[in-house]
Design a protein around this nucleic acid. Sequence first.
DNA 1: TCCTCACATGATTATTTGTTCATATATTCA
DNA 2: TGAATATATGAACAAATAATCATGTGAGGA
Lengths: 121, 121
Amino acid sequence: MKDEFICEENCPHMATVQKVKLEDMTRSSQKQLAEMFKLFSDETRLRIICSLLNTELCVCDLCALLELTQSNVSHQLQLLRNSKLVKYRKEGKQVYYSLEDEHVESIIKMALAHILEEKMK
Amino acid sequence: MKDEFICEENCPHMATVQKVKLEDMTRSSQKQLAEMFKLFSDETRLRIICSLLNTELCVCDLCALLELTQSNVSHQLQLLRNSKLVKYRKEGKQVYYSLEDEHVESIIKMALAHILEEKMK
DNA sequence: TCCTCACATGATTATTTGTTCATATATTCA
DNA sequence: TGAATATATGAACAAATAATCATGTGAGGA
């Protein structure tokens, strides 16, 4: 009873996850997957992604928050934009970035759970 | 009713996932996360991981199945071993590899769900 | 119109990474 | 013991990548 709620709440798109049959994975979907994981595999990029988990931020917010150069942040955001992982919204001179969808959160949570359990061993 | 079962069945370690608070993520756990994603970010390594999703395999099985050189496979397995993502078991001359835990499957499923939904747009 | 601010982008460089080749180790079998 | 097989590993190299520097673009204010 409680479980259903928790599941819905914290693990969105479960419906799609149910449909996923890992046995049917094609070579090309593996390639896509690898490309996606590559975006998460750089610490700087991951920090940017994590900063956007709760809120949208403009480029200079990210620079200040993460102590990175503007050029560096913009380059990383370009990669994330190209892969449709983040979206943006212009407002005057500023550009506000936010995450494209909630999968990102789910994926990070799942991976973090792995690390947590690993530690407890 | 059905939902609970499906959730338990396909998304193990939900209990840990519930505990994960993304806001509390430290710099060092972000680094660990990035390192983990890096292992999934190479197509060859991901193919090896995917091959091990259902069954354990020895090195030469992997070479044959994925059409890779033995040296290449062994090097990649070394990385996966060092990060405790796979475990192994020696039997005579052969060494059988398998996945260390079920998070791997959950993470891949979640990421695949993202790609699937992306396509449907 | 000119200046400033926020951001994007091209070029360059240092570093990391994936693969290959050559060789080492360890187990089985004759 | 010696040969054959399965796997591991070190060195070398090419390719990919992240960060930096310099510069470009475009909006807003004086």
